[in-house]
């Protein structure tokens, strides 16, 4: 609660004071809404989520602006992927509301949720390509499932999507023949196959060599601007993320501890944000996992 550094950051909680504890799933609190075509595609209010006894999110408010790249950053294990799963309705919040384009995701029926998901693309950390289908068939998959396009039309569309990620020549390869970066680009082509309104990127830069990382950074920016997409990018890769994001949230211990433009985040003075951005081994987040004093631990006689 009173971890050092937290007091110095700007708290986005509307009430300003100490956040109320998580209660039952709430009704939508339409406080900041101003008419249906809101500027925000995704609005999260008072989000609480627990896994067992572990609190993942506590009273989180988050807005994703249309046609912008919003990055959500934080150390590993802060529930960034969980956040994406909550936005896409794969998980349900314990309290609070999540609205995508005015629709409360967590209360949609299956049919409505699937309709909404057709307008979302998601790039998984592993790519999540179907291993028994070729690159072409993987990209064609959502089109075949959801449209009645003719074979020649389908072919053209798939080749255009593959061209957009620079892998038109790899159409006949199987996913196990692709490098990690190529698999992610194929997955990106698949994610944009149905021309979604929004793409969610789950750790797109993790485990990539500098060249494929730069390729992905350029692609994400390019896709976002060319197709007027809304992008949500979840990452702990500070420099690459700050380079392409329009808006940044930093999450830690289930709370938003900083928000703003990349420049504002870079200039943030709070100890916690500094440790994360500068990559310092010790700070508000300790190097040591919580434990009793070393001397005490070493000299207690206890048979194991």
């Amino acid at each position: 609660m009173s971890a050092p550094g937290h007091s110095a950051t700007r708290r986005p909680t509307p009430s300003g004071g100490d956040a109320p504890s998580c209660g039952a799933p709430g009704e939508p609190t339409r406080a900041s809404d101003s008419g249906p075509p809101s500027e925000n595609l995704v609005e999260i209010r008072g989000l609480c989520f627990r896994r067992g006894r572990q609190v993942i999110f506590e009273q989180v408010d988050l807005d994703i602006r249309r046609r912008a790249i919003t990055a959500v950053m934080g150390p590993s294990g802060t529930g960034k992927t969980t956040l994406l799963k909550l936005i896409t309705g794969q998980l349900h919040p314990d309290a609070g509301t999540i609205e995508v384009d005015g629709q409360p995701v967590h209360r949609l029926g299956k049919a409505a949720l699937y309709r909404l998901r057709r307008r979302m693309g998601m790039l998984f950390q592993s790519g999540a390509l179907l291993t028994d289908l070729s690159v072409f068939d993987n990209v064609a998959y959502p089109l075949r499932e959801h449209t009645d396009l003719s074979a020649s039309m389908l072919r053209k569309l798939v080749l255009m999507k593959l061209e957009a990620v620079g892998l038109r020549g790899a159409r006949d390869l199987m996913p196990n023949a692709l490098s990690g970066g190529m698999a992610r680009r194929v997955a990106l082509a698949r994610a944009i196959a149905l021309d979604p309104d929004m793409i969610l990127y789950d750790e797109p830069f993790t485990g990539q060599d500098p060249i494929s990382k730069a390729t992905l950074v350029a692609l994400i920016r390019q896709l976002n601007d060319a197709a007027a997409l809304t992008s949500i990018l979840v990452s702990h890769d500070v420099m690459d993320t700050l380079a392409i994001a329009d808006h940044v949230y930093v999450i830690s211990h289930g709370k938003v501890i900083a928000r703003g433009t990349p420049e504002a985040i870079m200039a943030d003075r709070s100890a916690w944000v500094r440790q994360f951005i500068d990559g310092l081994p010790d700070g508000p987040v300790h190097f040591h996992y919580p434990a009793p004093e070393l001397t005490e631990d070493l000299f207690t006689r206890r048979s194991v």
Binding site: Q90, K110, R117, R118, M120, F124, S126, A128, H146, A187
Partner: peptide, 22 residues
């Protein structure tokens, strides 16, 4: 199990395809 572990089932769900039925 491998499709689940490699997020292929989640991927299908995100493509609005029900993995149970498909």
């Amino acid at each position: 199990g491998l499709m689940k572990a490699t997020e292929q089932l989640s991927g299908l769900e995100m493509m609005a395809v029900d993995p149970v039925r498909r």
